[in-house]
Every structure is written in structure tokens, then in C-alpha cells.
């Protein structure tokens, strides 16, 4: 995100800690719900700040969140979101690119470290040409997809208390199981990637992340 948005976000997070614990928890749910919308992070944070002001002032008057906001928190958020401008197609592409490039950079880094450890300790002649298996490739895609699916789900249902930890546990187990399956059955190397090329790829992805993140508002 750009500098203004980042500053606003940090300021909001810092101020949030001055609220009562109950209101902090509620505001976390509200912000999570706003995050699942297609409004830009900057717009979300402007609203975040307004609600923060509202709750803080209400607390000072001795009002509860229900008295300040009303009984239906999700309806409150939906009414707000209906008034916020949505991200344009271009903004959405930039946002998606920033998320995917960062995740891919992290996953390739992990792969690189483990592959290098693998070739160093397997006793075979050392080479910087590292095998990429179909399992690793598919596993990476599955991890990214599941992680974002899960985050999206948690954000959208942030006002429903039930089953959240159970859902997290189930997704985690499904993830582990899938990765195991992929690792066992798809062990055959698809191609070999030189460690140097991988390092360059990580750097390029990181630059893409940095640039798109700066562009995103």
C-alpha cells in the first residue's frame, strides 16, 4: 500500500489499543469484514478511523457499542460498504499481483533453501541445478489458493462466532494431507532450475511486489 494508507493504518492500529477490550474485539471484526470488500484499503481505513472516533467518543460518554452503532453490526457494515467506491479493474489487478508476487517469492525462497539443503546432504555430487517436482509446483498453487480462500471466508463471516477455530483446524489438516499426497505421488522432477535463476526469480517477484504494493491505495 502507498505511504498515506500505511501511515493511516498504523495510526488506526495504535489508537485502537486505547479502546475497551470489548470494543477492540468488535472493531477487529468490523475491519475484517471491511477487508473482504472490494473497496480500496485507503477507503477502508478512512471508515476504520471514523468508527474508531465514534466508539472512542461513545465510550467517554459511557455508551456501549450497541448504543453507539446499533444492534446489527453486519448491517451497519453493509450500509457503509454500499457507499464506498469500489476498486477499478486496474486497481484490482495491481492488488492481486502484489499479493500473489509476495506469496510466490516466499514459497520459492522456502523451496530454494530446502532444495539446497537436500542436495548438500544427500551424498550425491553437489549441483546448483535443483529438481522441481510436479508435487511441489501443485502444492505451491494449492497453498496459495487455500490460504486466500480461508482468509476470505474468515473475513466474510467475521460476525459469526461459531465454528471458526474448528474451520481453521479442518482447513489446516486438509492442507497438510493434500501436501503429503502431492509429495508422495508427484515426486518425479518436471524440470531442473538453477539456484541462481531461482534467486533472480525471487528478486524479480519481490520487486513486482514492492512496485505494485506502492501503487495500491
Amino acid at each position: 500500500m502507498n505511504k498515506t494508507t500505511k501511515q493511516l493504518l498504523e495510526e488506526n492500529d495504535l489508537r485502537e489499543k486505547q479502546l475497551s477490550l470489548e470494543n477492540q474485539k468488535l472493531l477487529t471484526d468490523i475491519v475484517a469484514y471491511l477487508r473482504s470488500s472490494s473497496a480500496s484499503t485507503y477507503q477502508q481505513e478512512l471508515v476504520h478511523r471514523d468508527i474508531l472516533d465514534m466508539l472512542q467518543e461513545g465510550e467517554a460518554r459511557g455508551q456501549t457499542a450497541r448504543e453507539i452503532i446499533g444492534v446489527d453490526f453486519q448491517a451497519f457494515c453493509d450500509e457503509i460498504l454500499a457507499e464506498l467506491p469500489k476498486r477499478s479493474m486496474k486497481q484490482r489487478i495491481v492488488y492481486g499481483l502484489s499479493i500473489v508476487s509476495l506469496t510466490a517469492a516466499v514459497l520459492i525462497s522456502i523451496w530454494l533453501v530446502f532444495s539446497l539443503l537436500g542436495v548438500s546432504f544427500q551424498g550425491r555430487p553437489f549441483t546448483l541445478w535443483l529438481p522441481v517436482t510436479a508435487g511441489q509446483l501443485l502444492g505451491g498453487v494449492v497453498i496459495i489458493a487455500l490460504a486466500y480462500g480461508l482468509v476470505e471466508y474468515i473475513c466474510r463471516t467475521s460476525f459469526g462466532e461459531q465454528n471458526r477455530t474448528r474451520l481453521q483446524a479442518i482447513s489446516f489438516l486438509v492442507c497438510i494431507f493434500l501436501i503429503f499426497l502431492l509429495r508422495i505421488f508427484l515426486q518425479r522432477p518436471l524440470f531442473y532450475l538453477h539456484a541462481g535463476i531461482a534467486a533472480v526469480l525471487i528478486a524479480v517477484l519481490f520487486v513486482i511486489y514492492k512496485v505494485t504494493d506502492r501503487l495500491e491505495s
Binding site: V47, D50, I51, D53, M54, Q56, E57, G58, A60, R61, R66, E67, I68, I69, G70, F76, E79, I80, A82, E83, L84
Partner: peptide, 28 residues
């Protein structure tokens, strides 16, 4: 509640019918 009014104010602001300004207050 203020929570009912806030989204309406956002809409009025978006449609250019009201303008908003931040000022310091005695409570917050």
C-alpha cells in the same frame, strides 16, 4: 443510534450534499 446515521452521512457526502471537516473535540 449514530451507526444508523453514519452510512447516510457517507451517502450524502458522496453525492455532494454535505461536506465534512475534522475538528478537535473535548471528548476525543
Amino acid at each position: 443510534p449514530e451507526g444508523t446515521i453514519y452510512p447516510l452521512l457517507l451517502r450524502l457526502e458522496k453525492n455532494g450534499l454535505v461536506s465534512a471537516a475534522y475538528r478537535p473535540s473535548e471528548l476525543g
